[in-house]
Design a protein around this nucleic acid. Structure first.
Lengths: 203, 203
DNA sequence: GTCTATAACTCGATAGAC
DNA sequence: GTCTATCGAGTTATAGAC
């Protein structure tokens, strides 16, 4: 299908909305800001996406998808446990360093938005971690790793990958780091996180 | 000083403001909500605290203080490294499980509020981690722990303590946990976090 | 499809009575 | 110190011309 002027405007709006919503959140964002950022006027926003809420929904859904899909695909793959941990840490760190403000946006709105809204967005494609649980149990029986709870292992992996970005202003301030020092440290973590996790469970 | 009707109203306002601001953030909070929650009217809010921003400042400052003071006092104490890690994990987990919505509130506003606002609130009581850095270097030379970056160690400790609470709705959803299961897991983490960290650096 | 103008409404803040 | 009433700025959303 050839690009018409129509879809190009839609894309400009989506790009602008993404920027503004992720920066300011649902409550802080202004339709005027989005219009300005897209180089159009407010009325056109409503022409393409009925309401602020509808537009927000599109942006949130896409953002949440980006953050969650990778977790499932890697953790449910057939890789050996340690490789899985390394792959996850590396690829996830990459996604987040390319979208550093996305996690806080999604976390925020998941805490604020009503349950019905989230239900509508996430639907029923509930991930399962059966695979991973079995794999961890097997390693424990083999004696290669300590007795760990799979759920807590996953929580640790995700926490170490995401939180440093979410808390960037905090860490910069309490540790007295300038932006360059901080980003150097974040780069180190891309490989360090996996080794840290592995060291913590290895026997 | 005896409690007058005056200060009691002030306290009601502060308690209400805390509830509403932490739940909805600066942008999402409504003065009407705060007034309702305190059982008074909007005009009184302005009588006690000039503006929404001033009221917010008080709440934010108190919240940030609660989260940050413990980090410094424990990490700069004279305890042996492993004890320090255990004490921090336990006490910090306790603070946060008693104020589960505080971290996201503070993180959010630290990302959103202008630099001048934060400067005004935090002033110049910049913590230093010289103590900790020296202590870690000493342990490395003694050969009791691996060569680790002090900054990253602190980032890991804080990340593992805070993030699970911040991402509660995410973890509940992707891991299919009901609230009781989730809080059981969070309880386990209070002691588990420290052992996890220690295992990851021990030689 | 895109614009200008404006309606409809929300919300922080103040005036003024008690 | 506390209330009711209201102002005025700012915001989403729509009407209507091009």
């Amino acid at each position: 299908m050839p690009r018409t002027k129509n879809t190009s405007t839609e894309e400009k709006i989506l790009a602008a909305a993404k920027t503004i919503f992720i920066e300011k959140g649902m409550d802080g964002a202004r339709m005027q800001d989005i219009a300005d950022n897209a180089g159009i006027n407010k009325a056109l926003l409503h022409y393409y996406f009925k309401s602020k809420e509808k537009l927000f929904e599109v942006i949130f859904k896409e953002g949440a998808e980006k953050l969650f899909s990778k977790i499932n695909s890697i953790l449910n793959s057939d890789l050996p446990l340690f490789e899985k941990i390394r792959l996850f840490s590396n690829e996830y760190a990459e996604i987040i360093s390319q979208n550093p403000y996305l996690p806080l946006f999604v976390l925020n709105e998941m805490n604020k938005q009503p349950h019905s809204f989230l239900e509508n967005i996430f639907g029923k494609n509930q991930p399962t971690f059966e695979n991973l649980v079995k794999q961890i149990d097997k390693e424990i029986k083999k004696g290669t790793i300590k007795q760990v709870s799979p759920v807590n292992l996953v929580i640790n992996m995700i926490s170490l990958s995401i939180f440093p970005f979410v808390a960037k202003p905090v860490f910069q301030r309490i540790m007295n780091l300038d932006p360059l020092q901080f980003s150097t440290i974040m780069d180190q973590r891309k490989t360090m996180n996996a080794e840290f996790i592995i060291a913590s469970i290895k026997k």
